[in-house]
Design a protein around this nucleic acid. Structure first.
Length: 232
DNA sequence: GTCCAGGGCCGTT
DNA sequence: AACGGCCATGGA
């Protein structure tokens, strides 16, 4: 077996999971209300922290009903009301704080214009996101990749579990896993294609992990079982 | 009733 | 630096 299996695994699961409409946003809503669809992704990235997406969707519906999928409107909204709206997504007290924090940040530093934020240097804006209370590495990178279309690979609990079972030969902490994926994938892709590959591959890993590489794994029929040392 | 979900923070070792 | 407890809802 080759010393790293990332590219091979990517090749295989790309066949199984195609044309993923990952991180869908409500374009109609944003068109009608003249809001920035990237902010919906940012809100979703915070709301989905350790939370099922189905619960996040309920919160997003509530936010849309009151036109809160907007930086200024969250920044000036009543926090109690905000908590109520995002309640279905769980951890609603801290998440309301986090939405406030990031909205205030974008409003104060960038006049609420995300172009002004995203056009800056990648390392700088990643550090800036990480400096905000409630924005850790996965949330920051989800924002950078899915909202900012930056070449950043998102590592989540699914990715870690997969790496542990395959296994890959790097320490299983966030930075090392990310570095490994980025080194391997950037051998094959550059520029916009690389961004698109990071985007889809993360989504593909989530689907694979939900279907097969679950906590209680389903190795039967798993498309990458031959590339994996784990056998259940 | 139990387990789990597209994490992150904080306090204790 | 590493680890455990905590945050909370809703679906399986």
């Amino acid at each position: 077996m080759s010393k790293d299996k990332i590219l091979e695994i990517h090749r295989i699961i790309s066949k199984n999971y195609k044309d993923l409409n990952w991180w869908p946003v409500d374009s109609k809503y944003h068109k009608k209300n003249q809001t920035d669809p990237r902010f919906e992704i940012i809100v979703g990235a915070i709301l989905t922290q350790n939370t099922a997406w189905s619960n996040v969707e309920k919160a997003l519906v509530n936010l849309k009903e009151k036109n809160k999928l907007d930086i200024k409107n969250i920044a000036k909204s009543d926090e109690k009301e905000l908590r109520e709206m995002i309640k279905p997504s769980g951890f609603f007290n801290q998440k309301a704080d986090r939405l406030k924090t990031i909205s205030n940040h974008f409003l104060e530093r960038y006049g609420g214009n995300l172009d002004n934020f995203f056009k800056r240097n990648l390392k700088e804006i990643r550090e800036e996101l990480l400096s905000l209370n409630g924005i850790g590495p996965e949330t920051a990178d989800s924002i950078l990749l899915y909202a900012g279309e930056k070449p950043v690979f998102v590592v989540d609990a699914y990715t870690k579990r997969l790496c542990q079972r395959i296994p890959i030969k790097v320490e299983l902490d966030y930075d090392n896993i990310q570095k490994h994926f980025q080194e391997e994938l950037s051998k094959q892709y550059i520029g916009k294609e690389l961004v698109q590959t990071y985007n889809e591959f993360h989504a593909q890993i989530v689907l694979l992990a939900k279907e097969y590489c679950k906590k209680k794994p389903n190795c039967n029929d798993c498309p990458i079982s031959k590339n994996c040392n784990e056998l259940f």
